[in-house]
Design a protein around this nucleic acid. Structure first.
Lengths: 212, 212, 212, 212
DNA sequence: CATGAATGAGGTTTCATTCAT
DNA sequence: TATGAATGAAACCTCATTCAT
C-alpha cells in the first residue's frame, strides 16, 4: 500500500507583496513546462525553480512540497475544465439532446485545447496514486452535471440515466485524453470537436427513447 | 528534451534451464504486483526482487535495467491485447458493420478485463515519456488492423476511413482506460462490453453510408 | 576539530528607544519559549521572530546571528545564577561551615528554580561545543567564589581546598541539572534545597578538619 | 511540541556476511569519534560514513536514519554502564553501607572512565528531546537497583528510602557528568572515585539511622 | 548462477542570512 | 527601522546498479 502521508498539499502562503505574485506564477508555469519537456520522472524541484528563474528556497516558500506543486497545477486544470463544462451545461438546460451534446462537447474540447500543454503535461501526474482523489472528485462533480442536464432534455429520456451520463462522460474524456496524449495527426485534431459530438450523440441516441 | 538514454530495453538473455524460467516469470509477476500495490513511484528493484523471492543480482541477470522490466510488462500487455483484437478482426473480415464492431469490441474488452490488474498497474507506466514509443507502435498496428477490417465491411463504406478508424480506436481504448483507472461502479463494469459496442457502433453508423 | 568561526556573539547594538527595548525583550523571551516548546533542533530564527511578534529582519538588527541569540539567553541565565550565589557567599563570609553551605545552596536552588523554564530550555544549548567557553568561564568564577568563602569558614579548614571547592560546586550543579532535566518526582523537587544541603554538607564535613 | 515521529529507531538489519559486521562496527565507532571531535551539530551522516571508511548508502543499510545511529551509541553506553553498576550492587547485597557505596561508586566511575570518550561524546545527544525516553528508562532501572541494594544494608536504615536512593543516583551521575563534560583538572579526575565515595557516603550517613 | 553488500549521484527539503522595498 | 521575499549551501535519505563472494 502506498504510504499515505496525506501531507499538507495546499499552497503555503498567499504572497502579500506584488513581486511575489509574479514569482509564484512563474513557478506554476515552470512546473507545466518542465512536466511537458522532461516528464514527471525528471521533474525535480530544482529544475522547476531554475526554469522559473528563482531558487528552490523560494519555491518552498509557496508550496510545502513537490506534490503540492503538482496538485496545484492539476487542480487548476481540472477545475477550469470542469467549470467550463458546467457553465455550458447550465446554458442548455431544457433543450433538445442535440443542443445539449453540442454545447457540452464543444465547451469541453474548447477548454481542453485552450490548455493543451497543461493537458498533455498532466497526463502522467493524474496517473499517480496521490492524485487520484483530486481527479475523482472532479469526475464526480462532472457526472452530476451531466446527469442533471441530460434529465432536462426536452425530446428524449433514458431508461438508465446514470449509465448514460457515465458513458457520456467517459466518451468525452477518454478519447480526448487518448488523442492528446497519443499525438493524433493534425487532421484529426482539427476535426475533434465534431467527431466527438458524433461519438457522444451516436451513443446517447441509441441509449434514449423519444418522449411521446 | 528528455535525456535519450535509449539504453538496452530488451530482456538480457533467454534462460535455458527450466528453473531460470520460473525465476524470470516470478520477477515478471512481482513487477505487476508491486506496481499495483505500491505504485510506480515506490517500485524499486529490490522490492520487486523480494516479492519475487530472489535477489537484485538475479533480477539484473535477466533484465538489464529497471526500465526494461517495466517495458517487458507493458509490452506483453499491449502485445496480447493487440493480438486478441487482431485475431477477432481477422475473423470478421467481409462481414457487416455490426458484426465487426461486436467482435472487435468484445475481444478488446475481454482481453483487457482478463488482465485487469495489469491494465490498472500499467496506467502510470504508459504515461511515462519513456514508454511512449512502445505504446505508439502498438497503436499504429491497431489502427492498421481496424482500418483494414472496416474497409471489408459488406454493408457500409466510409468517406473518411482513416478518421473513422482512428475514432473507433479512440472510442474503445479511451473510455476503457478511463473506466478501469477511475474505478467505475460495478454496474458499469458488468455492462461495459455492451455499452462500448453501442458507443462505437453509434459513431460508426453516423460516419458511414450504406453501400447501394 | 569544530570549525572555529568565533563570529561575533555579542548583541549587535543597544537599542536607544524604549520601543526597541520592548522588541529585544520579546525576542529574548521568545527564544526561551521556542527552546522549551520545540527544542533546540527545531529552533529557527523565523520561529523565534514569529513568536516574538516581529520579523526575522528585525531579529537580525539586534543579534548578529542565531548563536548570539542563544548565547545571550545562556549568558543571562548563568550570569544571574552566578550573581545570586556570589552575593549569598559574600553574605556569609567568616561564618561556620553549616551557615555557608546553607546560604549558598539555598541561593543556588532558589535562583535555579525561579528560572526553571530557562534552566530546562538551556540544557541542550549548554551541551553544544560552541557554548562551552561561556559555561566554563562562569564555572571558573563560581569556583573562585566558593573557594574564597570556604576559606573564611570559622570552624573548619581543608587540607585540599581546591578539591573541596570543586566538589562542592559539582555537588550543587551536577545533581540539580540531573534533577531538572530528568524530571524528578514532585516530592523530590520540593525537598531539593534541604537534600542538596545535606549532600554538600555531608561531603564537606568529611573533607574538613576542625580548627582547634 | 516537538514533532513526535517516533520513527523506527532500531537498527535495520543484522549483517549476515562477515565483512558487514566490520562495516557496522566501523560506523558505530565513527559516530562516537565524529561526535567527540565535531560535536552533535556538525555530525552528519556523510561525515560519519567517511570516517568509517564507507559510503552513506552503506550507513543507511544498517541504520534507518541518523537518530537511530545516535540511539544505538547512547543505548550501548547507558546499557553497559547500567549493567556494571547492577552487577556491583548485586555483589554487595546484605553488606554494610560503606561497602555498598564503595562498590557501587567504584563500578560506576570505572565504567564511565573506561568509556570516557563515549561519555563525553554523548553528553549533547542525551540532551536531545528524542533521547529522553531512552535515558529515563535507564535511570529508572538504576534507581530500582540502588533502592534494592540500600534496603539490604546490614547496619543502617532509611526513613525515606526512595529519596535517599534518588539522591544517591543523582550524586553519582550529576557530578560525574559535570566533571567529564566540564573538563576537570587531572588532579580531580584521578581522585574522582574516592571523592565521589565521600560525597555519596556523606549524604547517605546523614539520611540513615543505625539499626539497633 | 545467485546473493546481497557497497556505492554515490541525485532528489527533497530546511533554514540562516541578506537586502530591496 | 521594519518587513518578509529571496537565496543557496548543506543536510538527510533513496535506489539503480555493480561486483566480490
Amino acid at each position: 500500500m502506498a504510504k499515505s502521508k496525506d501531507a499538507n498539499l495546499s499552497p503555503r502562503k498567499k504572497p502579500r507583496q506584488a513581486r511575489s505574485q509574479v514569482t509564484v506564477d512563474a513557478i506554476f508555469e515552470a512546473t507545466i513546462q518542465v512536466l511537458l519537456v522532461e516528464g514527471l520522472q525528471r521533474l525535480t524541484t530544482i529544475r522547476v525553480a531554475e526554469r522559473a528563474g528563482t531558487s528552490v528556497g523560494t519555491l518552498y516558500q509557496y508550496y510545502p512540497n513537490k506534490q503540492a506543486l503538482l496538485f496545484a497545477v492539476l487542480q487548476r486544470h481540472v477545475g477550469e475544465v470542469g467549470e467550463h463544462v458546467r457553465r455550458a451545461a447550465e446554458s442548455v438546460h431544457g433543450r433538445p439532446l442535440t443542443a445539449i451534446v453540442s454545447a457540452v462537447v464543444r465547451a469541453f474540447v474548447q477548454a481542453k485545447t485552450d490548455r493543451i500543454d497543461e493537458a498533455r503535461a498532466l497526463y502522467s501526474v493524474a496517473g499517480e496514486l496521490d492524485s487520484r482523489r483530486l481527479v475523482e472528485e472532479s469526475e464526480e462533480r462532472g457526472l452530476a452535471v451531466l446527469t442533471a442536464v441530460l434529465r432536462t432534455s426536452t425530446d428524449v429520456q433514458f431508461d438508465d440515466l446514470p449509465t448514460a451520463a457515465y458513458m457520456f462522460m467517459a466518451a468525452m474524456i477518454g478519447p480526448t485524453t487518448y488523442m492528446i496524449e497519443g499525438g493524433a495527426p493534425p487532421s484529426i485534431m482539427r476535426a475533434w470537436s465534431g467527431q466527438l459530438e458524433s461519438l457522444c450523440l451516436g451513443y446517447l441516441e441509441r441509449a434514449a427513447y423519444a418522449i411521446p
